[in-house]
Amino acid sequence: MITGTIFTLILLGGLYYFVFYPNQKLKRIRSSPILEVDGASTRYPNLPLGDLGVFFESNANRRIRVVFPKLTPDGDVQYIYSWHDLRFIRIPTSRGAGQGRINLKIAQELAFLMKEHIQFVEPEILNLRRQWHKINELLELVATSDFYASQQEIYERALLQVENLLDKAEELQQVYVRFIREVLIGRQVAGYDPTLLLSDSVTIDHQYKRIREEYQDMKETATAYAELLRTRQF
């Protein structure tokens, strides 16, 4: 009877450790913007934030993809996308002092900027470039047609709208990169003198908000125009 109870406890403990605990940990990781990866700074030297990075995605094998921001020797922003086993990932806490606390503070400030840049701005630019090439191909095609030549002006307008959107999206991307670069430079400076760390660091100013609002307005107009074109075709 005692042996059976012990076996049951061992079985339940193993079930928790190998099934329930990893699932719970994975759920917490997915909802955490900042992650700490054991050995990341050794694997990738000169990371401004040490072992801290931003959650990107996870797969069915419980492996986590983390993004580490870095400055190149030329001062450009570089993202390192890296897969890691669940065992080597932790959710950082605000406990501690010194450089670790500074890293966490800056990582928290960067998380929003990086996620917006990676998940919104970069995909938008890629999508707009694909649209531009597609519309340009159609424009060149209808220009050679006897039946569809009258639609050439429509595609020219659509191409112009996409070009304007692309210019604004790339301008928005430069704003993100500039902010991220300044935050990372601030981290390097704070490594020598923590008192030089900006209070609340570099916040998103009116320039970011203005450009983002302009881009959204242009996108809504372009979308409405595209819907109108589709309606006219039926």
Rank of each mutant, 00 (worst) to 15 (best):
Val183Pro: 01
Ala149Phe: 12
Pro48Gly: 03
Lys219Arg: 12
Val183Thr: 06
Lys25Pro: 11
Leu165Pro: 00
Ile180Ser: 01
Asn46Ile: 04
Ala143Asp: 15
Tyr215Asn: 03
Ile211Gly: 04
Tyr21Met: 11
Thr195Asn: 11
Asp51Cys: 06
Glu182Ser: 05
Lys168Trp: 02
Thr8Tyr: 03
Leu71Trp: 02
Val66Pro: 07
Leu165Gly: 01
Asp51Asn: 15
Ala224Thr: 06
Val177Leu: 05
Leu49Lys: 04
Arg43Ile: 09
Gln216Val: 13
Leu9His: 02
Ile125Val: 04
Ala143Leu: 13
Gly13Asp: 00
Tyr79Arg: 09
Glu109Thr: 12
Ser58Tyr: 05
Thr144Asp: 15
Leu228Gln: 15
Gln174Val: 02
Ser31Met: 12
Thr223Arg: 15
Arg232Gly: 09
Phe56Tyr: 14
His84Ala: 12
Arg157Ile: 03
Tyr225Ala: 07
Thr221Tyr: 04
Tyr148Asp: 11
Leu52Trp: 07
Lys115Glu: 13
Gln188Arg: 10
Arg232Thr: 01
Met1Trp: 10
Arg157Trp: 06
Val162Tyr: 00
Glu171Ser: 03
Pro22Glu: 04
Glu57His: 11
Glu156Ser: 09
Asn127Thr: 08
Gly50Phe: 03
Ser31Leu: 13
Leu52Thr: 04
Tyr17Arg: 12
Pro194His: 07
Leu172Arg: 02
Ile154Thr: 12
